[in-house]
């Protein structure tokens, strides 16, 4: 599972991001190698979501660069980055409530124009989540939390991502579903998709990750292999002390 030595898929260099006049991310450096699963940990308002938004181009950094697949994409819009192979499962899933499950999955494949491959994509998603096939004509807003999580994952996978970003996949789910969710993350990861998982649930996130970063008020304070982080004194006190 380790991907040491693989080339970088994503690299953030010296990122400074502001909201208005407030400095959110300070000199952030981070990378994800091909086929790797990386966790980004941190408390409330530590800048995790901003990091993801910066990666996707939803927020423009004032300084620093974002590179994806060896290409600098800092000035590119979100649409371009997604076409290059990023996809995201957003925080709180953010499904299109008044649209059907099928339409939601279609939106995930919005930028994929070849319709021949489309069917295989659907098959792949329906194999992973058979329930979605059953519910395909139901409105997404009427599904339960766990089902919505599946739609969100399926929707992201429809984009055929090289790098899948996950924003708090455990948020708002019952413990049993959290576990199931992380199983699926692992499954998707094993199919060769690199992942950056943003989590508050450090224990769970590090247990499946190759490496981890810890963010606090916009600064990286710890980084290293996941198993080392799991042993780290400060981190245990802050997050794992239950």
């Amino acid at each position: 599972m380790s991907a040491n030595g693989a080339p970088d898929l994503l690299r953030l260099k010296g990122i400074d991001t502001y909201y208005g006049e407030i400095h959110i991310l300070e000199n952030l450096n981070l990378n994800v190698r091909e086929g790797e699963l990386v966790s980004l940990l941190g408390g409330n308002a530590s800048g995790k979501s901003t990091t993801l938004k910066t990666i996707l181009g939803l927020v423009q950094p004032r300084n620093g660069s974002v590179e994806f697949r060896g290409e600098e994409v800092t000035g590119r819009n979100t649409s371009y980055r997604i076409r290059q192979g990023m996809a995201i499962v957003p925080e709180n899933r953010r499904l299109f409530g008044p649209m059907t499950v099928l339409e939601n999955l279609e939106m995930g494949a919005y930028l994929i124009r070849d319709t021949k491959g489309r069917k295989e994509d659907f098959d792949r998603v329906y194999t992973l989540f058979p329930l979605l096939h059953e519910r395909r004509s139901q409105l997404a807003g009427t599904l339960s939390g766990g089902e919505q999580q599946m739609v969100a994952m399926g929707r992201a996978l429809m984009a055929r991502p090289k790098l899948l970003l996950m924003d708090e996949p455990s948020m708002g789910l019952a413990p049993i579903l959290v576990e199931r969710s992380f199983e699926i993350i692992q499954q998707v990861h094993q199919s060769g998709v690199a992942m950056l998982v943003v989590e508050q649930n450090a224990n769970m996130a590090l247990s499946i990750a190759d490496r981890g970063y810890v963010l606090s008020t916009g600064r990286l304070v710890l980084q290293g292999p996941a198993n080392e982080l799991l042993q780290h004194e400060d981190l245990r006190k802050a997050y794992l002390g239950r």
Partner: peptide, 16 residues
Amino acid sequence: RSTSFDREAASMMGID
């Protein structure tokens, strides 16, 4: 429709 429901989520799908 997706943009009107949730603009940011729509852009996360690659919709311009």
